[in-house]
């Protein structure tokens, strides 16, 4: 979980960087998207990414269900938020929400683009595609909710991954926590701004 989690965090950095180019310069966004969409190395990395996502999901769901079985008789009164954060106890649920969002998200952009590449050899204009997709209010709302789920998943997951890998020593723990909180708020925030910006015609 830790290793795949960190890989997904690395992917998010690239993804967030490329997408935020939209705000700065549409040209450079298209260039970067073209590079990621056509370069052979990137296709190889993409296979790795999908393997990582699937592994993470399968392990995550197995972990969640196995752990649930370890308390066959539950408590009448549960500790609730007295001893732990709600999102740290809801990683399976938050992950599943992200998965649902991910399916919609791939169906919007990745799917049509690859389909076009295979059938016509041409890429589609992802900028135009974003504009069309984010003209519908319900899509914008689903993207916002998806990114909020991602933010909470990372709020626990970022630190948790380093703890699982045994790296959050007393010295580094506060730093890892700090970077984790910043990352979990900033990255989903940038993602959320995209559908909003397109919907509001800011870009």
């Amino acid at each position: 979980m830790g290793i795949t989690g960190v890989s997904l965090i690395a992917f998010l950095c690239v993804h967030c960087y490329v997408n935020s180019l939209v705000f700065i310069n549409v040209e450079s966004f298209n260039d970067a998207a073209h590079f990621l969409g056509t370069n052979l190395l990137m296709h190889i990395a993409e296979v790795g990414l999908f393997a990582g996502i699937i592994l993470h999901i399968v392990q995550g769901l197995m972990l969640t269900f196995q752990n649930q079985k370890m308390r066959p008789v539950g408590y009448e009164i549960n500790p609730g938020n007295k001893s732990s954060k709600w999102y740290s106890r809801s990683m399976g649920l938050l992950g599943t929400l992200i998965l649902l969002f991910l399916v919609l998200h791939l169906w919007h952009f990745w799917g049509p683009n690859r389909y076009n590449q295979i059938t016509t050899g041409e890429e589609i204009s992802l900028y135009d595609k974003m504009q069309a997709t984010f003209s519908e209010l319900w899509v914008v709302i689903v993207y916002i909710l998806g990114c909020i789920a991602l933010a909470y998943h990372l709020l626990h997951g970022f630190w948790s991954a380093f703890q699982t890998l045994g790296l959050s020593t007393s010295k580094y723990r506060p730093i890892i926590r700090g970077i984790g909180y910043a990352f979990s708020i900033i990255v989903p925030f940038i993602f959320i701004m995209m559908p909003i910006a397109f919907y509001m015609h800011w870009v």
Partner: peptide, 22 residues
């Protein structure tokens, strides 16, 4: 299996730290 919720540390009567889990 541990998912690092840290409820254990909060409820431990002897204040055992999750740094031990690390």
């Amino acid at each position: 299996s541990c998912t690092n919720t840290e409820a254990c540390e909060a409820e431990c009567p002897k204040g055992i730290s999750v740094q031990n889990i690390r």
